[in-house]
């Protein structure tokens, strides 16, 4: 709840700063907010049921076992590559991550999963990277990013003591 209030306060502060730059900038900010909302709402209204219904289908031991907080290095590796296979934008991946977290997946494993989704993104390589930038770029980029999801998961594991209520708060 406090997180929400902070976000709201920051949002209003930024909007205030945009308004101070002049009325046109403020109006542009509002127009972009509206466009974003119109674009995202339909996705969200379909993606949320998708996440909760898939959650009913995911066997409980996948989340808490394979990807659980105790799954260690194996869990991080599984999460990294599973993340790379998730297609689509944030409207697909984040509801899934929420579902996994609620089912008992470890936060560090989910950091690895999101990182895998964001930097490996096998579907994006095929749909965007190769057509726009060429296969060679995709190869260099993939080589450079291959270890990142695991690395991010390990960093998250190391940072976990700083976020003590994260494990308890997700249930």
């Amino acid at each position: 709840m406090t997180g929400r209030l902070i976000l709201a306060a920051l949002a209003l502060l930024c909007f205030g700063l945009a308004l101070r730059k002049g009325r046109p900038a403020g109006l542009r900010a509002l127009r972009e907010t509206r466009d974003n909302l119109v674009r995202i709402m339909p996705m969200m209204l379909v993606a949320m049921p998708m996440a909760t219904f898939l959650a009913e289908l995911v066997p409980a031991d996948v989340a808490s076992g394979w990807l659980g907080p105790e799954s260690g290095l194996t869990g991080l590796v599984v999460a990294s590559f599973a993340g790379g296979l998730i297609p689509g934008g944030p409207y697909a991946s984040f509801p899934l991550v929420l579902t996994f977290l609620k089912a008992g997946a470890g936060p560090a494993q989910m950091v690895a999963l999101i990182t895998g989704w964001a930097v490996l993104a096998f579907h994006r390589v095929v749909m965007w990277e190769i057509p726009v930038l060429g296969a060679r770029f995709a190869v260099v980029r993939t080589i450079s990013s291959l270890a990142l999801p695991l690395l991010a998961g390990l960093i998250a594991e190391a940072l976990m003591p700083l976020f003590p209520h994260l494990l308890a708060g997700m249930r």
Partner: peptide
């Protein structure tokens, strides 16, 4: 969204 839209300005 409001924050993102404002930051972009």
């Amino acid at each position: 969204m409001l924050m993102a839209g404002s930051l972009r300005q």
